[in-house]
Structures are given as structure tokens and as C-alpha cells.
Design a protein around this nucleic acid. Structure first.
Lengths: 137, 137
DNA sequence: ATTGTTGCAAATAGTTTGCATTCTG
DNA sequence: CAGAATGCAAACTATTTGCAACAAT
């Protein structure tokens, strides 16, 4: 049987669960529950509820990171995905919703400090700046 | 007639609009639409839709900052509220939801840089860290 | 066999919208 | 008076939940 992150966390290694992890692993960007539902529904039929339930289980185990954006949707990614693509902080215009992606991530360097102060294992973060773009000022 | 921030932004100075601004100004913490609805409904009757509509108008004008937290609710505060209390960044346990308030705000010092790079006037930001607390690891 | 996982349908929660009415400037 | 703001009810969207059927260990 293949090695899977599921082995470590006391969860049954179901095909659907592994499929969801696979989709997350294969994606360069963060995905919504609905994205995963869409990506998966062709091969194995996956219920949207299952996607939500699985994602929230995996998030509880620390395998997956959940970020809620101002659009009201939750975005998920593998918690171990520390690569550049895992980071998409945004600057959004409050008026026209124009969005700019930011390179900076000031949080990384804070992690060690906060982690030692609080005892938390930090698996993810979300950050967003709001403002008015040049046109809307 | 009293001076009000509403004068500057081409909005009618209605009693309800001013009441909402007053409630925000008087609050040490960020408020949800429902908080404002509750705080207001005794004196002047305010419809929840009006609260939402007003808040989103004010946010568009840059007077109010909106942050959506992982609980799925949007929190509003005056954009000019730069005091310490305007900042409540959180560290949340993905499993038991234990929450710690953080002092650090690494974003402040980025603002000038980002602002000059993008031309945005930055009125607010939201940030949240996720992890596993000592008990849940 | 036992317990965790899934599907389905219905419920929830927060937020948004259409339209008629009312108020501000 | 004209246009903007408000109330009300209904619609919407993302997410959650109860329960019965099912699969993994």
C-alpha cells in the first residue's frame, strides 16, 4: 500500500479522501470546495458535502490550510505546501475590487517567534490588505 | 449642522447613517453587521439590510474597513481607527478553535512601501494565523 | 463486526437584491 | 422636486447537518 499522509493521522485511507489530497497536491493555486468538487466529479463521483467534510477533517489534523477570503469563500491548500505558490496575499480595492497580488509576506519571519511564545504549530495564515486603488481615490 | 465625515464624500447625511458611524466610532472592537443592528435597534429602528447597505457604501468610500474572518462573518471598523484596538490579529487552533490574540502587526511597516509601489491608499488589512494548539498537537 | 465515511436532501447563516415608500438637500 | 436612502420580503451563496447506506480496518 502506498505511503500517504493519511497514515500518520489516524484517518481511514479512503479513495475519495486520497483523491482530494491528490487534487490539492496537484494544484498550483488554492482551491475552493467547489473547485475540488468540479475537478473530481468526472472520475470518481464525489458529493459536495463530502468535500466539505473531508476538508474540514484534514484542516483539523493540520494537513490542510483553510483561508476565508473577503469574497466569502474558503480556499484550501496543503499545509505542507510552503512553496511560493502557496502564498497569494492580495491588495483589494474596496470600491472597484481591482486586485493586486503581493510578493511580500511579512509573516514568515514571525512564525518562529509566535510559535515559541504560544506553543502553537503554525500551519497557515491568511492576510489581505484593503484600500482604494488609484482610479477610485 | 455638525461636521461629519459624511460631508467629504458626497453622501447624504442621514440620521441612520450617522448613527452607524457613531456606533463604529464608539466601539473598541470591530463589529459585525448584526452587532450594529442590535446596538441600534433600540433607539432608532434600523433595518438589517440598511446596515449592510450602509456599511458597504462606507467601505467603498474608504471610510470603513471590512474584514471577513474564518467564522464567515464580516467585521467592520472605522478606517481611520488606527489605534491599537483596531488591531486584533488572531491565532486560531484548527482543531479546537482556541484563539489567541496577537500583539504583533508586521503589516504596518509594509504599508508605505506597498502604497508607493501600487498607488493604493491602504485603509485596512486582515490577518490570521492558523495552527494547532499545544493540546491538539 | 465495529466504527468511520459518504450521499442525499434539507436546513442554516450571512449577505444581497427588487421594489415600493420615505426622506434629504 | 429629484435623487438618494430605507424597509420589507424574498432570493442567493457558501456551508453544515441528520440520517440511512456503505466501506475500511
Amino acid at each position: 500500500m502506498d505511503k500517504s499522509p493519511l497514515d500518520d493521522i489516524n484517518l481511514k485511507k479512503t479513495r475519495k479522501r486520497q483523491a482530494i489530497l491528490g487534487i490539492l497536491a496537484g494544484s498550483k493555486t488554492r482551491l475552493t470546495a467547489d473547485d475540488i468538487f468540479a475537478a473530481c466529479s468526472e472520475s470518481l463521483s464525489l458529493n459536495l458535502s463530502t468535500v466539505y467534510r473531508t476538508l474540514s477533517t484534514l484542516a483539523e489534523k493540520g494537513l490542510v490550510t483553510k483561508c476565508v477570503e473577503p469574497d466569502g469563500k474558503a480556499y484550501y491548500s496543503l499545509a505542507c505546501a510552503t512553496g511560493a505558490d502557496a502564498h497569494h496575499h492580495h491588495l483589494v480595492c474596496a470600491k472597484c475590487k481591482a486586485t493586486i497580488e503581493l510578493d511580500e509576506c511579512p509573516i514568515e519571519e514571525l512564525n518562529r517567534k509566535i510559535s515559541s511564545e504560544t506553543g502553537f504549530v503554525i500551519t497557515g495564515h491568511s492576510m489581505e490588505l484593503t484600500g482604494l486603488c488609484p482610479k477610485c481615490q
